[in-house]
Design a protein around this nucleic acid. Structure first.
Length: 375
DNA sequence: TGTTATCCTG
DNA sequence: CAGGATAACA
């Protein structure tokens, strides 16, 4: 059986321990390389239309400052999918039940034909995977926006032609005084989709600091170049942190999932034990010593079908011993009327959990979880 | 207070 | 086996 006694006892740390051990992977933060953005045509970077003399220095500084603010804000803004973030927030605050309802509906299985069953492992990884994918997609978008902004600042003479549209000009062709300031729309801090909240939470506290650094860099003689460097470093750092936090978080979900499975396994085991103990009592058995779980027992067949359907490996004898003990303990408790106590199972769990054996080394290796994922 | 276990339901 | 509610634990 693939669930030896070592994984079945409640109150024991083995299950969570196993999950943690398995999920302990390489937690070093991924790095993001910030090379040149080949998606931006070089033509956009070299065109110029204003001479320096058109601008007073102060205005120039102000415009840059505004751009920096936009950039820094942009780090925490992302396009919201389908329903706008603000609309969703409104719905949440006005109709909490409604929001909860939708959450439930989303978690319902999709109708993919008549009872098409998906392996549970596949289901879990798909669900988690989709979330991570979504978050990574959002990060990617943010990265693109930010890179556009960085390049825009790097070439102050170039007109901004990012996804937010071309810059507005006055009828005379002169740039309006505040045209480089963020529009009220951009200035608005949009509510974030919940999936993106964590990332923003990680990035936000650093934003003020970055803004200061950027402004200082701007005032230095090296000007835009220093600014670009500052932003580039910051973007790299922020991205690493964000990706790390996603690695949803993801590991935590997987760990919880595994714990849940082991919990279910245990439940099934003890339910069977109780069932067969009661059956033995009703069959007239009086001495618990008469009870034993053998390879040809009915209870063994049931458990084996559940845990080791394909007979992938031979059930160790120690499992039979523990199972026998468990059965006898249930028999004793039920036959002496202890089951009237709501927590009558706890002493049994305690006894059995003491018999836990150590986790096999093979399960402790981090490769094991990876192999599990591949298969 | 966050995590884990258990109970219950579907 | 999943998911929710709740208890127990660290």
């Amino acid at each position: 059986m693939d669930v030896p006694p070592v994984l079945l006892s409640p109150q024991s740390q083995t299950c969570s321990h196993l999950a943690e051990t398995c999920m302990e992977g390489d937690r070093s933060p991924p790095t993001v390389e910030l090379g040149r953005d080949s998606s931006i045509p070089s033509g956009q970077l070299t065109s110029s239309r204003l001479t320096d003399s058109d601008w007073f220095w102060n205005e120039h500084i102000q415009a840059k400052r505004a751009r920096v603010e936009t950039i820094v804000r942009g780090m925490c803004l992302s396009p919201s999918p389908l329903v706008s973030g603000s609309a969703r927030a409104r719905e949440r605050s006005c109709y909490p039940e409604k929001a909860r309802e939708r959450k439930r509906k989303q978690s319902l299985p999709m109708h993919q034909g008549p009872l098409k069953s998906v392996p549970v492992w596949d289901r879990a990884s798909k669900k988690g995977g989709t979330r991570v994918k979504e978050q990574l997609h959002l990060l990617k978008q943010q990265l693109r926006h930010l890179q556009e902004h960085v390049l825009q600042v790097a070439e102050p003479r170039a007109p901004a032609q990012g996804p937010e549209g071309t810059e507005q000009r006055s009828p005379t062709g002169a740039k309006p005084k505040n045209s480089s300031l963020p529009s009220p729309r951009t200035m608005e801090s949009k509510p974030q989709p919940s999936s993106n909240k964590d990332i923003c939470g990680a990035v936000k506290p650093r934003m003020v600091e970055v803004q200061q650094q950027a402004e200082e860099a701007m005032l230095r003689p090296s000007g835009p170049r220093a600014l670009v460097e500052t932003l580039r470093k910051e973007l790299s750092r922020a991205m690493s942190q964000a990706v790390d936090s996603v690695l949803q978080q993801f590991n935590r979900c997987i760990t919880s999932q595994m714990i849940k499975w082991f919990s279910n396994f245990r439940e099934f085991y003890y339910i069977q034990m109780e069932k067969y103990a009661r059956q033995a009592i009703s069959d007239g058995v009086t001495n618990p010593k008469m009870l034993a779980v053998l390879r040809d027992s009915e209870i063994f067949r049931v458990l084996n079908t559940h845990y080791n359907k394909g007979n992938d490996f031979e059930v160790p004898d120690c499992f039979l011993e523990i199972a026998t003990l468990t059965l006898q303990e249930f028999f004793r408790a039920v036959s002496t009327g202890k089951d009237s106590d709501p927590s009558w199972k706890k002493p049994i769990y305690k006894i059995i959990s003491k018999l836990d054996s150590d986790i096999p080394e093979i399960l402790k290796s981090s490769n094991y979880a990876q192999e599990l994922f591949r298969s």
